[in-house]
Design a protein around this nucleic acid. Sequence first.
DNA 1: GAGGTTTGTTACCGATCGGTAACAGCATTG
DNA 2: CAATGCTGTTACCGATCGGTAACAAACCTC
Lengths: 224, 224
Amino acid sequence: MTKEKSEPEAVALAVEPGVQRPRERIFVCAQDLFHRRGIRGVGVDAIAEAAGTNKMTLYRHFGSKDELILEYLNYKGRKSDEVWTEIEAASPGDPIGQLYGFVDKAAKFIAEDERGCDLANAAVELTEEGHPGLRVIEEFKVRQRDRLARLCGAAGASRPELLADALVLLIEGARVSRRSVGTEGPSANLVRTSKAVIASFGVPPRTKHRSQPKAANRRIHRGK
Amino acid sequence: MTKEKSEPEAVALAVEPGVQRPRERIFVCAQDLFHRRGIRGVGVDAIAEAAGTNKMTLYRHFGSKDELILEYLNYKGRKSDEVWTEIEAASPGDPIGQLYGFVDKAAKFIAEDERGCDLANAAVELTEEGHPGLRVIEEFKVRQRDRLARLCGAAGASRPELLADALVLLIEGARVSRRSVGTEGPSANLVRTSKAVIASFGVPPRTKHRSQPKAANRRIHRGK
DNA sequence: GAGGTTTGTTACCGATCGGTAACAGCATTG
DNA sequence: CAATGCTGTTACCGATCGGTAACAAACCTC
């Protein structure tokens, strides 16, 4: 099992000590390391060191690694919730625009980050059945889907619940596919596919397209 | 980090020693443990013990844990390839039937097993960049998608490559969603969604439906 | 300046990690 | 029978795991 640290590998986030309290630095570094190396792939020592502090201080603020994991998962869920307010602010009172905005945003996240959904990844890593983190993940995913279903309904979809499930599958699949085969794989067609599915549910294309992507490089087949 | 073994937990596979050579027993147990607890969640000692042998014998057959992982990933890919021959045998000369059979089979696998795709899970766990296992995973996923694209073309889809990508996203998403929110989540609508997408690409419904699922319990909305 | 709180430091703990050396037992095959 | 090749056993290696005790230094507040 070849290890992957030894060197500080560009020093996680270069959190200079003093600018924030240790607890904040620890939490920020834990997010970054959990995201990049996985929950089981990083130890508490590495987190503390990346945060410019030590293990003892970590354990004073987070009773255990599991507690830190829980706070990490809850934070990721909260941060994803905030994206919704962004989407609503971008197309106020325009559910159709919000629906397409949601898909666009998901595609952008996927293109920019190779590690996929932190919560879904955590669900793969937390194999001890009954781990409290699994509940956090499930609750978030259900909340996200229901919110999307409501939006689909507001946009006039014929069967909003079914459309929401379809979009969830497409986006979730794009995240994991992007991890396995990269940006050139099936995830490259997420937006195109989603729009086709949305249209097949009777939702019209968005009218006031406030940021149409530049019409260049529209390709369906990846090079092969 | 609460551990999850201590007890032999129903003794992995109850591989009685003697019936197979140690190498086979080790490999079978490694598959089961990697699948259930994740690659990083199980050590070589646990594998050897579950196989009724010891670590030394394991290392005589597999030079390292990484080699064992590689053989595991390659085996999983090969086994998935075999599913294709089953599908073709079930609907010989009937690409449309094979296409629907592919979706049905995926849905069945997802309903029966909560752990999702072993290869996709491994891609999440193998975070050390450049790990040889990642290449195995990518090659398999590309191979699988291209095969599906060819089938979509044979079935008369209007844009077979795009349909293949859409189906890959749906299925991949269903696997990961099933892990996060269970069988009652969006993955419950995988078949329904896939059929709608397939139809929207101009592929007619299958004619010689050789095993129509019992018309009962067809529900779109899960209870909420 | 005194008091209490938050930190850093060092040294531990038992357990597990991946991996190896040396040797004894056992079976097969000639 | 002897020789060879698997296998099991034990003990070990250095490193890391999650987690803790004890004490000194720094800090902030009054």
